[in-house]
Amino acid sequence: MRRKEKNPVANPFLAPEVRPSPIQAPSQQDGGRFEYEGAPMPTGAPAPANPVLRLPLWMVSPRVAPPRIPTVPLLQVVGLHGGAGATTVAGLLGQGVVDCGVGLDWLWTPSAPVLLVARTHGHGLDLVRRTGQQWASGGLNQIRILGLVLVADLPNLGAQKRPAESASRIFPVTWRLDWEEELRLNPGPPHPDRLSSRMRRIRKSVLAKAELASPHIHHQQQQARSS
C-alpha cells in the first residue's frame, strides 16, 4: 500500500489551478524514493532577471550554422555548474547518451531531450531554482527539458534536505541520486554489474522516459520491427 507524503512540498513555479501529472510512464518508487514529479510543462512564471542557461548562437541566430552530428542522441546531459556530475550521470546511462558539459554551448541538437544535473549544495540548488524559473517562464522552449538529476554532495543532506525537496518539484521529473561511495572512489562510472539497486532503477527510469520523449528513437525502432 502506497504511503501518503507528509507535508508535500509545492512547486514554487506551478500556478495554483494547475496540478502536476505524470508526463510519461508512472513513477517507479519504493521505500527509498528516488523519483519526483513536478509541472509537466512551463507554467508562465515571470522570467528571471539573470537567466542561468544561455542558448547557443546556432539556435538563436540564422547566421550561425548548427553543428554537424553523426547521429541524433537519445539524451543530452547538461550540468548546471562545474562538478555537478554530468559526466558521471552520462556514463551511468550508457550508450546513446552524450555529455554536453556545463551549460548549453555544447548542445548537439534541439531534437533530443535534455537532462539537467546539479549537486545538492547551496550553489547547485540555487541554480536549479533559477533555471526552473527560466524554464517555467518559457525561456527554454527551444529545447526539450526531460528533467533533472540531483546528485547528493554529502551522505546526509542535513539543512539542505528541505531545499532539495523543494527543488525536486520544479521540473517535469527529478531523480535523486543519493551519496554513492562507489562514485567517489572510482575515476569513471562503475560497471553496470556494480551499480546499486537504486542506481539501476534510476537508470532504467531515465532511459525509459528519454525513449518516450525521443520521436526519432521510436521511428528507428519501428523501422527495425518492420524490416
Rank of each mutant, 00 (worst) to 15 (best):
P67R: 08
R68A: 13
R68G: 08
R68N: 08
I69D: 00
I69P: 03
P70S: 12
T71I: 04
V72I: 15
V72R: 11
L74N: 03
Q76L: 05
Q76F: 05
Q76K: 08
G79C: 07
L80R: 00
H81N: 02
G82I: 00
G83S: 03
G83E: 00
G83T: 01
A84K: 04
G85M: 09
A86I: 02
T87Q: 02
T87R: 13
A90L: 04
L93F: 12
L93S: 10
G94S: 12
C100D: 00
V102N: 08
G103Y: 07
W106T: 11
W106A: 13
L107G: 02
L107S: 02
L107T: 00
W108V: 04
W108L: 15
T109D: 05
P110N: 03
P110I: 01
S111V: 15
A112K: 03
A112P: 07
L115R: 06
L115F: 13
V117D: 03
A118L: 09
A118I: 08
A118K: 05
R119G: 15
R119S: 14
R119T: 13
T120G: 04
T120I: 06
T120E: 00
T120S: 14
H121T: 07
G124K: 03
L127D: 04
R130C: 06
G132K: 09
G132Q: 12
Q133S: 09
Q133P: 10
Q133G: 10
Q134V: 08
A136M: 12
G138L: 12
G138W: 10
G138C: 11
G139I: 06
L140S: 08
L140E: 07
L140M: 08
I143R: 10
G147S: 02
G147V: 10
V149P: 01
L150M: 13
L150W: 09
P155K: 13
N156Y: 13
L157R: 02
A159H: 07
A159I: 12
R162K: 09
R162W: 10
P163L: 08
E165Q: 14
E165R: 10
S166M: 15
S166G: 05
A167Y: 11
R169A: 11
I170D: 00
W175E: 02
W175V: 05
L177R: 08
L177N: 01
L177C: 05
L177E: 00
W179P: 00
E181R: 10
E181G: 15
E182G: 15
L183K: 05
L183Y: 03
R184Q: 13
R184S: 10
L185A: 14
N186A: 13
G188P: 02
G188A: 14
G188W: 12
P189Y: 08
P190C: 06
H191N: 13
L195P: 10
